[in-house]
């Protein structure tokens, strides 16, 4: 019975990775939820927007590295982030002007936008593969760990170690900054409030003199920022592979819907809920329980509730349960 060791193991393999993953999902889901709130549709191209943004960041990182610029112990990608966001914003604005604006002007049924986003998804996916290829790209540099397993053991004298990778620490810090900035913007600035107003009641926003095209423009800018940040953090934490980003669509949608589509707070809660459930249920808890239970009760198996292959199933089951009991998500009623 060693609760401390159990906790450290649990933190090392579940808490920390899930917090990082949850932050990434939350930022991704915020992008989806903003588009849903303002433009009234689920953007299937969001995963590929994240991939595109990350690609832009990677290319810029390589450029910086080739001229010998680095960010000390931090990944160079953080320096490249603004460039990546700018490029992605440009792409999204061009997409909006060439694709979505037409349907807005025609007051097309919302599902038209969904189908258009399928087309955009194909194009962006093709674009990313065309430019950077389909292979895994690692672009994290700088210090690898904030605390390594060994340092931790030496510091605490425990049997179990706890590692915090730089990418995980950065993910959480950046996520906190991004979320705080977004909420400040939405709740305190005139433009942010006008976005919420537009999402709440389009006609009344028009009657108040809010310019819908401007609201949409700002939305795409913010979405570009969120998607690029989410994608880059995910890429730093794991690695960049276009197909993986496409697959992130499901947990991101699940997070946004669980939280209540259109609700930023919900997107964040949903992101963490999905991430923690995925990681906990697919992690073999044998070691943790081994420390907690008396020897006689120690489990023989891995106590892995579900194989990691089923992590999508976990997001999905949570989604289903939430929808069955709260059809509008956890945080319904309060939109963007």
């Amino acid at each position: 019975m060693e609760p401390l060791n159990a906790f450290v193991t649990f933190a090392n393999f579940v808490l920390i990775p899930a917090t990082a993953y949850g932050s990434q999902l939350a930022i991704g889901a915020l992008g989806v939820t903003l588009i849903y709130g303002i433009l009234r549709f689920s953007n299937f191209a969001h995963g590929d927007t994240m991939a595109f943004g990350t690609m832009a960041v990677i290319l810029c990182t390589w450029g910086l590295q080739s001229v010998g610029i680095s960010f000390g112990p931090l990944p160079t990608a953080l320096l490249a982030l603004p460039v990546g966001i700018a490029v992605t914003a440009l792409l999204l604005i061009v997409t909006d002007k060439t694709v979505y604006r037409f349907y807005r002007a025609k007051k097309a049924p919302p599902v038209t936008f969904v189908i258009a986003s399928l087309g955009v998804m194909f194009v962006m996916n093709g674009l990313v593969r065309f430019i950077i290829g389909v292979d895994d790209q690692r672009f994290a540099d700088g210090e690898r760990f904030v605390i390594s397993v060994r340092t931790f053991r030496e510091m605490t004298g425990l049997d179990e170690g706890l590692a915090i990778r730089t990418s995980q620490a950065i993910t959480v810090v950046v996520a906190v900054i991004v979320v705080a900035a977004l909420f400040w913007f939405l709740n305190k600035t005139r433009t942010g409030k006008s976005m919420r107003a537009f999402s709440d009641n389009e006609d009344l926003a028009l009657l108040s003199g809010i310019n819908p095209e401007r609201v949409v423009f700002i939305t795409w800018l913010i979405v570009a920022g969120l998607a690029t940040v989410a994608g880059t953090l995910y890429g730093l934490d794991k690695s960049f592979k276009p197909f993986t980003y496409f697959q992130l669509l499901l947990p991101i949608f699940a997070a946004a819907i669980v939280g209540g589509l259109g609700n930023p707070l919900g997107a964040i809660a949903g992101g963490f809920l999905i991430a923690f459930a995925e990681v906990t249920i697919t992690y073999p808890l044998k070691k943790v329980l081994g420390y907690l239970l008396p020897e006689s009760l120690e489990p023989d198996g891995l106590v892995q509730l579900l194989s990691t292959d089923y992590k999508f199933a976990v997001s999905f089951c949570i989604l289903l349960i939430v929808l069955l009991f709260r059809p509008t998500g956890l945080f319904a009623g309060k939109s963007v």
């Binding site: 709130g37 009234r40 689920s42 919302p110 969904v114 949608f253 819907i257 509008t328």
Partner: peptide
């Protein structure tokens, strides 16, 4: 509702 925001669309 998972792909399209419900509620009244703009009529103005």
């Amino acid at each position: 509702a998972s792909i399209v925001k419900q509620g009244t669309r703009s009529t103005l």
